[in-house]
Amino acid sequence: MEQLLINGLIAGSLAALIAGGLALVYGVLGIFNLALGQMVLLGGYAVWWLHQSVGLTLPVSIVGGLLMAGGLTWVTFEVFIAPFYKRHRFLPLVTTIALGMILDAAMLLFFEARPRSILSNGKNIMDIGGVRLSVEQVYLVVLTVLLLCVFAYVLHSTPFGRRIRAVVQHSHAAMSLGIRASVLHRVIFILSGVLAACGGIFIGIDQNLTPVLAFPITIKAYAAIIAGGKGNFWGAIVCAYLIALLEQLVIGIEWFGRFYIPAGYQQSVALLFIIVFLLCRPSGLFSFKNRTA
């Protein structure tokens, strides 16, 4: 059981990184970015390339990879989002699908189809009271939680974070106060790209990178933000962990001491989660009625 919780924590940390950025983008711009999974993978590949091919040290590669991811997301915003999202918020849905296909092909071209792992030597396993996990996983989970803490601080205790929250909650009012929403839109989109790249690095270290992972990643992130409530950053994070934990429990537990659920159903958990939420709480897990007329 402890092992399942730890497994959920590992998988959840990965999902949280990706879903968090997506929630911000959805909350602020109201748009769907369907090339998210590809951005995740590109971040991982960039670090793999810098570390394994160029030969930089891992920390330098990670910083470099994140910078590259940030740059790429910026270009993405200017070319695929900015010209469209003010006309209709569904237009980026189409343009980002196109972008996703372009990136899929680009990854095959530059990184080939063979799987890549960022670390060349295997993992160092440890055993803590019957729970087994690798040193790398401990790092990844701790860094993710740290990153989320930094985000929490920025979002809730700095002028910049206040501005973001203001734009999320009432963009017209924020603009009428002199907040430059268009600049914030760019910053937030780039931030989501960088967070996604962190997810890619996570995958590249904990598992391995293959160019076709993108779509399932996107789906899971969307499950988390739908369940977490529209544009609710913390809701999305909590739901990402929740879905990951459920996925582990569903197949890891001997239900009622009698049977196991076949592993093939594991991936349906996220989708089932969306459906249940849309039926029971369409506005998400973390939206409370606080409107008084």
Binding site: A166, Q169, H170, S176
Partner: peptide
């Protein structure tokens, strides 16, 4: 500007 639908940030 003061908005008809309340231009305040409810979660702040």
């Amino acid at each position: 500007r003061v908005f008809q639908n309340f231009g305040i940030f409810r979660d702040m």
